[in-house]
């Protein structure tokens, strides 16, 4: 039972990061109807920036800010100079370009920083605290959980309570009508990519220290897991992404804990397959069919 609780807490902490990363995928899907397969690689690139700044200044927090800022900039850049000029005639076009971007980013990171694992510092202790004799979360897990939840809440407030959030939603749902109402749809699209990449950068900074360290491929599995989480929740639903992220985090934690870490990647793919077979629209899909 003790082990169960430990795995539950651990799964929630990991799930919070998956939730944030899945949310970033949903942001771009809603704005541009594209699954950004380059999001993992983009997050790694910004994590390198973050840890470089953290190493140079000695401050984790400055590094975190640098990572998020470079994420915002990278997202805007990718939309402005790349995605905008890729034809949307077929849904595959932008996917192929995104995959190309993955190869490019990972190759450049390897050339600049080398292909070895680099240690990533954490601002808090990673040893689990024991509560009533049960090993629960570490201070770092609490920070991850808190930061991920804060992002989710802030994004929800942005979208439902602010004029720019209303513009972004309108531009995503009805671009032509939005333009007639004075919304600069192109700018909203750039903003959507920037926000998503900024959230991805934060998620990258949070998740990198929990793995083997900084590496050009450090986010590959995280991306697959987060993509699964987004699909579980229904790609259109921010609430679904959060619930999906936490759910997938829990499931993977139990699988890893009870069946061994070798089965984790397999479990992700089985879960993805199961959702696509049983409920392809995701748990939170609206009643109407999704047309891609």
């Amino acid at each position: 039972m003790e082990r169960f609780w430990f795995l539950t807490f651990d799964g929630l902490a990991a799930g919070a990061v998956y939730a944030a990363f899945a949310l970033a995928l949903v942001l771009i899907w809603r704005a541009a109807r594209v699954v950004n397969f380059a999001q993992g690689a983009m997050a790694v690139a910004t994590a390198y920036v973050g840890y470089a700044v953290a190493g140079a200044t000695g401050s984790y927090w400055l590094g975190l800010a640098a990572a998020v800022l470079s994420g915002l900039a990278l997202g805007a850049l990718v939309e402005r100079v790349l995605m905008r000029f890729v034809g949307t005639a077929g849904p595959l076009n932008q996917v192929i370009v995104a995959l190309g971007l993955v190869l490019l980013i990972q190759a450049v990171l390897g050339m600049v920083f080398g292909n070895g694992y680099r240690p990533a510092a954490t601002p808090f202790d990673t040893d689990a605290l024991t509560v009533g004799g049960v090993a629960a979360l570490s201070p770092y897990d609490l920070w991850v959980l808190g930061a991920a939840l804060a992002v989710v809440v802030l994004l929800a407030l942005l979208f439902t309570r602010t004029p720019v959030g209303l513009r972004m939603r309108a531009a995503a749902f009805a671009p032509e009508v939005s333009r007639l109402l004075g919304v600069s749809v192109g700018r909203m699209l750039t903003l959507g990519w920037a926000l998503a990449a900024g959230v991805g950068a934060l998620a990258g900074m949070l998740v990198v220290p929990t793995g083997l360290g900084l590496h050009p491929h450090a986010m590959d599995l995280v991306f697959v897991v987060a993509f699964t989480a987004a699909v579980v929740g229904g790609l259109d639903s921010p609430v679904g992404a959060v619930v999906g992220g936490l759910l997938v985090g829990l499931i993977l934690s139990y699988v890893t804990g009870y069946l061994g870490p070798d089965t984790t990647p397999l479990a992700v793919l089985v879960l993805l397959l199961a959702v696509l077979l049983v409920r392809p629209g995701g748990l939170f899909s609206a009643a109407r069919a999704r047309h891609v």
Binding site: L166, A170, A174, S178, L181, G182
Partner: peptide, 20 residues
Amino acid sequence: GRGVVTELTVAENLRLGGLW
């Protein structure tokens, strides 16, 4: 036919019309 943003509420649609 499709002037209304159907995913937004009535109030949000009207707010959208005056945002600029």
